[in-house]
Design a protein around this nucleic acid. Structure first.
Length: 263
DNA sequence: ATGACGGTGTGGCACCGA
């Protein structure tokens, strides 16, 4: 089965691109971030016509996440249990596969603006809350995938300028320690399970021709639990949608797991 | 040091993103 994640930076603007991408890339589940719309504005019918059910946790203007899946999602949880949050950043579902249940968690991690700001402090607290919640989720669901926009570069391979951007937002030691804490729970960065080309990124600024110059960051991840790690057969970044007219600044990441495809 | 680009809102610029 194939699982993908994509920060689409407004589903109202990008719905046609999502539908087009799904037609060309018929994944089993797609995690979307930054819907920027409330639940009542979610294009459930258009996605259903394309063969996808939707578990939605929207928010007006900012944030908002959804999981599209070919099979029904059950046990839907919104946001981090034990971490009250005004912002819609997490949705978790259980999907039933012929190989048993799979827990899929979609996160739009806090941006954090800059070290020393209130938003950075919120990012650290949010990451703490996520880690504490996931510890139990992994015990309850050994076959678990955490996908989304992490807003953290894991290491210097994931940034176009590790020297100039050292200890700036998305590059701080503190953020990377939090990401390592997640990995320490028994999660694995699917992208790094395979040989990848250098300078592989998932986000490029809209400004200064960043995409053309490949000045990007890899901040979108698919983490798989230890139990799933042996089943991962590929993980790729699909840069093509960044060439669309009115593209999102992020592109999809796709992982393939050697579980029978959900029918 | 700043802004550059793009999305949203009840707007004519401000805020946010990364």
């Amino acid at each position: 089965m194939k699982i993908a994640t994509w920060n689409i930076n407004s589903l109202a603007v990008r719905l046609p691109q999502v539908l087009g991408w799904l037609a060309a890339n018929p994944v089993d589940a797609l995690c979307l971030q930054e819907l920027k719309l409330s639940d009542d504005k979610f294009p459930r019918d258009a996605l259903a016509a394309a063969g996808y059910q939707s578990a939605v946790f929207g928010q007006k203007t900012y944030n908002g996440v959804a999981i599209l899946s070919r099979t029904p999602a059950r046990n839907v949880v919104k946001n981090i249990v034990g971490f009250p949050d005004e912002q819609s950043r997490v949705i978790a579902v259980t999907l039933d596969t012929p190989q048993g249940e799979l827990r899929l968690i979609n996160g739009y991690f806090v941006n954090g603006q800059a070290p020393g700001t209130d938003k950075f402090a919120y990012k650290m607290q949010w990451l703490d809350g996520l880690c504490n919640w996931l510890r139990g989720e992994l015990l309850a669901h050994p076959k678990l995938v955490l996908a989304g926009d992490f807003n953290i570069t894991a290491d210097d391979r994931d940034t176009y300028d590790p020297v100039a951007l050292r200890e700036t937002i998305h590059h701080t030691t503190e953020e990377r320690q939090h990401l390592n804490a997640l990995l320490g729970l028994g999660l694995n960065d699917a992208f790094r399970l395979f040989e990848q080309s250098e300078k592989s990124y998932s986000w490029w600024d809209y400004r200064e021709f960043a995409f053309r110059r490949n000045r990007g960051l890899r901040i979108d991840y698919i983490l798989v639990s230890d139990a799933l790690k042996p089943t991962v057969t590929s993980c790729v970044i699909d840069k093509l949608p960044r060439k669309n007219e009115r593209p999102s600044d992020h592109v999809p990441v796709v992982a393939e797991l050697d579980l029978p495809s959900i029918k």
